[in-house]
Nucleic acid binder design. Structure first.
Lengths: 346, 346
DNA sequence: CTGAAAGCGCTAACAG
DNA sequence: CTGTTAGCGCTTTCAG
């Protein structure tokens, strides 16, 4: 059982025309008379004709489809990037197929394969935290599949990229904590394999350096996003609290980690910001509903999705490979709320 | 510029075989010698051959693709339903295309059209709150496209459906508030056009009735999900607070509304649950991080996605239309937390 | 066991 | 202005 709609052939037969005439009439070719066009158009419309995209794709060698791989849909960050992607693709007449890697390298690879199998015109991907070997992507790129990386990128693959200024976000978050009287700032972040982790950490380190704060290695803890995030965060916090000189502030380097760490601190009845101040990298809409309201570094998500899509479309519609590839860097915004305000506000 | 991989024809030429022999060898036909199969298989593998799905689809009249329309990706409820859909589809070898209607009837219609244009094998849809006229869906259903509705369903269209027991959720939420000493329970919910609104409201009404509480029409307020949800919720709360006898509890009938109402109450410095107790219909993971922790009715989202997908696959793979269509009803779970506990816990 | 040929629905030379 | 034809990559009779 399969659903079928009327074909160009049916129209031709019904109207006593040739298939190609109908095809041309439908595509509004200059070589078809207005009369015929109208006749064909009317018939097609009233019979609810829709061109078979498979046939069109097969013929034209293009599917007008973009494939997208993100880590997870259920995420404040990615969901908004997706909105940006959708908005921009629809505008340009592209359909989008979304898949999630769930931070697994295998699933990511499989997803890309599935997408490539559907013969798409281009790929938008944010690497999973489990990803190390990019050869499968490079191969696809080499045989000509246009690819744009966003958020979690890699040096290994040479193409357009869109990222947030993670360094700046990390620097500003840390500087903000310093200016609010924090003396011993810890950093909980995700796998160092993720491109942004290193950058955010660098921002954190340089802010400490600039304000002549000592740098303690034991204050930086990496969490493996592939494993249970709650356990990971919980261990990280325990480790920090059990230090001889436990931190009085934490800067969290990823969205999930931020909300998770926050939740755990509350569960442990640690007073925020009095005992521990906290700043997170997060796009959570409910950050301000938290108690206390959660100071966050917010990324320009929607814009990131749009930009990535635009670059991809540019790539797909170009006649030849571009001379050079761009990496677009978007600025994050620090939203100061209560969770980081250690000093009394008078 | 388009990306191409090697075709069956290339293999045939390279190996000095005919196209059909290669095709059969690849599909492991019994009429091909083991020797040839091995040769073809090896060549295909080493040259990274992947069948062109467009051609396969065109030929076989099937695309092994499921289209999905939800209201929004960025939603605690839908994101998990999507996980369920993905899991189940992958298991059965189907690709999935996701789109969001953003609660707009026009966008929903357009999405379905886009999806249908990609000649998919089946459609999974949760109606937008703006949807009233279902004729476009009925048409597709009539020409044979398998469709399964979930969460936001409609009587108008005769097919498999998967929903939550919304009546039960509404009843239990209300009953719980009553048992916790609330005397005047309001209900803020979404458009009455959504199938679940009516059911949750009925649960609310019947619980009041059962416990001999008076029913006040002014205690029930509908919010239009298409418009700005914050404004809508804000107006609703203002209306309730300005009553002669303002409520001492609110039962929220949808996920977005729940978290939004909660946020607004806090912003207005209304003490929860002392002044107003609140129970929401929500799948938010951070419900317990709220202050006070948020009592919620949680829906079996993942399962809903799975079930819907299974029913759809069943429909797609059936030789003929089923004799009758099922409506599967899944039970929600009430998570009692602090936001609803008006009575002192001793 | 292997091959030739038709056809899925559509587009695009090329003729007329 | 309209029609004929070939072909996109693949599967599937039907012949050999």
């Amino acid at each position: 059982m399969h659903f079928k709609s009327i074909t160009i052939k049916d129209i031709a037969k019904a109207l006593g025309l040739s298939i190609s005439t109908v095809s041309k009439a439908l595509r509004n070719s200059y070589e078809i008379s207005e009369e015929t066009k109208k006749m064909v158009g009317d018939y097609a419309h009233s019979h609810n004709y829709r061109p078979n995209p498979l046939a069109q794709g097969l013929r034209k060698g293009t599917s007008k489809t973009i494939g997208v791989v993100v880590a997870v849909f259920d995420d404040n960050f990615f969901s908004k990037v997706i909105d940006g992607i959708e908005s921009s693709s629809n505008e340009h007449g592209y359909s989008v197929i979304f898949t999630q890697s769930r931070e697994s390298y295998d699933k990511e690879k499989q997803n890309v394969q599935t997408l490539a199998d559907r013969s798409l015109d281009g790929l938008l991907i944010s690497l999973s935290s489990g990803t190390k070997d990019l050869s499968y992507l490079k191969e696809l790129s080499n045989i000509g599949l246009p690819i744009v990386l966003f958020d979690r990128i890699s040096e290994e693959i040479n193409t357009h990229k869109v990222v947030c200024n993670n360094y700046k976000g990390g620097y500003e978050a840390t500087e903000h904590l310093i200016k609010n009287g924090c003396k011993n700032i810890a950093h909980i972040t995700s796998n160092i394999t993720l491109s942004y982790s290193k950058e955010r950490e660098d921002g954190y380190l340089n802010a400490l350096k600039y304000y002549s704060f000592p740098i303690e290695e034991s204050n930086i803890i990496y969490c493996n996003q592939e494993d249970d995030i709650y356990d990971q965060a919980n261990n990280a916090i325990d480790k920090l609290l059990n230090k001889k000189n436990p931190p009085d502030a934490i800067f969290c380097g990823s969205d999930v980690l931020s909300t998770t760490v926050f939740r755990i601190l509350k569960k442990k009845n640690i007073r925020i910001p009095e005992e521990i101040a906290i700043v997170g990298f997060s796009n959570s809409a409910s950050a301000e509903a938290y108690d206390p309201s959660f100071t966050t570094v917010e990324q320009p998500t929607f814009e990131m999705g749009q930009k990535a899509t635009e670059l991809l479309i540019q790539l797909m519609e170009a006649k030849r490979k571009p001379l050079k590839y761009d990496t677009i860097v978007l600025d994050p915004v620090l939203h100061v709320r209560k969770s980081s305000q250690k000093l009394e506000i008078v």
